[in-house]
Design a protein around this nucleic acid. Structure first.
Lengths: 116, 116
DNA sequence: TCCTTGATTCGACGGCTGTCGATATGGTCG
DNA sequence: CGACCATATCGACAGCCGTCGAATCAAGGA
């Protein structure tokens, strides 16, 4: 259950100054949520879906894994603060929380030029 | 052993169109390398070190884990294509590969405005 | 009310991961 | 050469993770 209100608290590029331990623990949880191919695809599927949200029924088709496994991965993404969800009648909808992605994106911003 | 030359192959924001499975597998490996607090701190420690590189001897001090464990984490970062390394005399130096970070950063770029 | 469909939770299992101490390797200096 | 320092590798072990099928819950329609 990581919030996303603390986005400002941590997130200039990590290449500028060392992360403190607490921030590292926090961020590692988010990256761990991204460290599975199924979850990455789920996230991009949700984000690129019409209207910016998708119901679970839209998400089970493209994968070879069982529906409970999809549900498990969605839970991981939700608990990492990367997506939100809501039940509307029969279906449950998921959407991406842009602030969370932006936070990670900013963190990874590389130093200017260089290629090495 | 992930290259970083293929940076162009995958990396407009993942929120625009669904990732294909191959790209997802590839990217998940990089995020997995970032999914540990020690490795995140190592990476930022290396990147923010004077001259953009650090020898292992600079990296073992700030952590509570043993030296072999640090070595293991550095290997994970290297095999994920996030850092490079080289032996110079007695010491081994590590530096960040900016293209890899940039690739991930671009991938996570959130859609414009919105806050939800 | 009962059945059906959508989604989550549960319990189990195999494989992966982080950690350690011990050991090996690579290099420098007497 | 031989002692010594800096890193890496090895082997072991506990805990976590992705996956499944089965069971459960939630909502809607006969």
């Amino acid at each position: 259950m990581l919030g996303q209100d603390d986005a400002a608290a941590c997130c200039s590029p990590m290449v500028r100054e060392p992360l403190d331990e607490e921030a590292a623990v926090d961020l590692a949880k988010m990256f761990k949520a991204l460290s599975d191919p199924v979850r990455l695809r789920l996230l991009s599927l949700i984000a690129s879906h019409k209207g910016g949200e998708a119901c679970v029924c839209d998400l089970t088709g493209p994968f070879d894994v069982s529906q409970p496994t999809i549900s498990h991965h969605l839970k991981v993404l939700r608990e990492a603060g990367l997506v939100g969800s809501e039940r509307r009648g029969t279906w449950v909808y998921y959407w991406v929380l842009p602030a969370a992605l932006a936070k990670l994106s900013a963190l990874l911003q590389a130093p200017a030029g260089e290629s090495r």
